[in-house]
Nucleic acid binder design. Structure first.
Length: 514
RNA sequence: GGCGGCGUAGCCAAGUGGCUAAGGCAGAGGUCUGCAAAACCUUUAUUCGGCGGUUCGAGUCCGCCCGCCGCCUCCA
């Protein structure tokens, strides 16, 4: 079954067939770097990171370019407000963006070009457009003349008339058509400025993506994407200026991800409901955030809610638990069976899950279905784990190991399931009792120390907590259930949760991070 | 006004006209446990916003209606 991708251009799923067999060139519009990344940026970056990973999983060699818009009205404005240089603000925010995307486990694209480092390439394209008579210069500004482009509106499926009718832009009488857009803007005093044949100025917004995508990927390349809001005017204008300059088709597949709403409202500065990735990661694991985002198909609008992301976190736990259980069983029971004796039913389920996963992803990257395939396999794993635990069938151990590998591998295609993320959870600081003896004076001293720390709001001293937990274990060994229960309750009041396992008591801290 | 999207169980969310409508969360039973917790298993939509229509057959196609949203202006 071939991979199919929804192409905004034709508004339908199309079989994906790259220009050069086996190789994919893709470009995604990156952020304008004037503020921290929010959850919408995360969704866009994740969508293309996931696409990249899946294309590689499918065997393609991928060149992935994502730009930084590091000169723009918003950056200039923000820098002025902050009383600092626009370039240092952009530089700082690029670093912040990298950190945030890194925290989400997103890979760094093959190239991350910046607009300011490609001024010359932009000037070249603008020059060609003027020579070809599709762009004109007025008072140091250069505009693209929209009506010289016969296909204008092809991507957004709107005619020039329709666009003019709905236009809310103020009419600038220097332009030949209200829809003409700036390729080059003359700089005002104090604004960033580069020399050009039309005087000092700075690039218009759209030209940078044409310049950078074509520089790194060629005049025609496979995939171009971004948020759905970029369809018009950004991508429409990119197509117009690129194709008019080269006379060749620009991008072949246009991919757009849906928006993130916050409690059914659009996220916007004015509503004050912008959710920064950084702030979000204070409360949830990257894995939970990604499972939440991938739980909705990338083209559909996604509504953020605490409840939904909480349930994604518990779903992540479910996947992680299965993996650690496999590991535990493997430690206890060494595989005895050879390959031919492997557990048949589980093997079949593994193959089924892999097929289901790729079918789902082939169908326009249907990550909700792909996740479902993983959860199905996890259920089968859990059932087999029960069998293995009963000790009746050691032949399943081998297949369980394989099943775990498959879950990990599918998880890494979606970029979820980094097992080390689990350690970063606030509530996952677990320890197991050792069997050490605790005498009465140590116990009383530990209680006192814990109470002092608790009352002053400090983190509880872990070594003292351990002493209490060991003391409780002694009570249990002596079948002093009342004593054990009262210690458990005492600890719970101070934010320590104790859970008994076959290997001893496990405890973790809640509340303020230990 | 123009263009487009959405409405599926308590919540989130898949679903190429045709076997019993994925999956996750929550809920309910159960296993395990001294008790708990955690974990795991089982279970939870005669029905897909409403009304008509096409079809042997529709959540899936068509029409109308109701409700919600996005784009047309910077925006992922």
């Amino acid at each position: 079954m071939p991979l199919k991708i929804y192409n905004t251009m034709g508004r339908r799923k199309e079989p994906f067939d790259p220009l050069v067999p086996g190789e994919v060139r893709m470009y995604a519009c990156g952020p304008t770097v004037y503020d921290r990344a929010h959850i919408g940026h995360a969704r866009a970056a994740l969508t293309f990171d996931m696409m990249w990973r899946y294309l590689e999983y499918r065997g393609y060699k991928v060149i992935y370019v994502r730009n930084y818009t590091d000169v723009d009205d918003k950056i200039i404005k923000r820098a002025q407000e902050l009383g600092r240089g626009w370039d240092s603000l952009a530089e700082e925010q690029i670093e912040v963006y990298r950190q945030d995307m890194g925290a989400l486990g997103l890979r760094t694209p093959t190239h991350e070009p910046r607009a300011t480092q490609h001024i010359q390439e932009m000037l070249t394209i603008i020059q060609v457009l003027i020579e070809r008579g599709v762009a004109y210069c007025v008072d140091g500004d250069v505009y693209f003349e929209v009506r010289r482009c016969p296909d204008y509106g092809r991507l957004s499926h709107r005619s020039l008339e329709e666009l003019r009718a709905g236009a809310r832009v103020e009419v600038d009488h220097r332009k030949r058509d209200p829809l003409d857009f700036a390729l080059w803007k003359s700089s005002k005093l104090g604004e960033p400025s580069w020399d050009s044949p039309w005087g000092p100025g700075r690039p218009g917004w759209h030209i940078e993506c044409s310049a950078m995508s074509m520089k790194y990927l060629g005049e025609t390349f496979d995939i171009h994407g971004g948020g759905a809001d970029l369809i018009f005017p950004h991508h429409e204008n990119e197509i117009a200026q690129s194709e008019c300059a080269t006379g060749k088709p620009f991008a072949r597949y246009w991919v757009h991800n849906g928006f993130v709403n916050i409690h059914a409202e659009k996220m916007s500065k004015s509503l004050g409901n912008v959710l920064a990735v950084r702030d979000l990661l204070e409360h949830v694991t990257p894995g939970a955030l990604k499972i939440f985002l991938l739980g909705t198909h990338y083209r559909a609008p996604l509504d953020f809610s605490e409840e939904a992301i909480g349930s994604a976190g518990r779903a992540e736990e479910r996947l992680l638990n299965a993996l650690s259980e496999i590991r535990r069983v493997q430690e206890v029971e060494s595989p005895k069976a050879n390959a031919s004796q492997r557990d048949g039913p589980l093997l079949r389920r593994i193959l089924h899950a892999e097929r289901e996963f790729t079918d789902a992803m082939d169908d326009d990257l249907n990550t909700p279905r792909a996740l479902a395939a993983m959860f199905d396999l996890v259920r089968d794993i859990n059932i087999s784990l029960k069998d293995a635990e009963r000790g009746s069938d050691t032949s399943t151990i081998d297949s369980l190991g394989l099943a775990g590998d498959v879950v990990r591998s599918l998880g890494s295609v979606l970029g979820v399931l980094h097992e080390d993320w689990r350690e970063k959870r606030v509530f996952s600081d677990t320890r197991v009792t050792t069997g050490a003896q605790v005498d009465a004076s140590d116990y009383l001293e530990a209680r006192k120390a814990i109470d002092e720390a608790f009352q002053s709001g400090k983190p509880l001293p872990e070594d003292r907590v351990r002493i209490i937990v060991e003391r409780r274990r002694q009570c249990r060994d002596e079948q002093d259930w009342a004593g054990a229960d009262s210690i458990r309750a005492w600890l719970a009041e101070r934010g320590v949760i104790v859970e008994d396992t076959p290997r001893g008591a496990r405890w973790h801290l809640t509340g303020p991070r230990a």
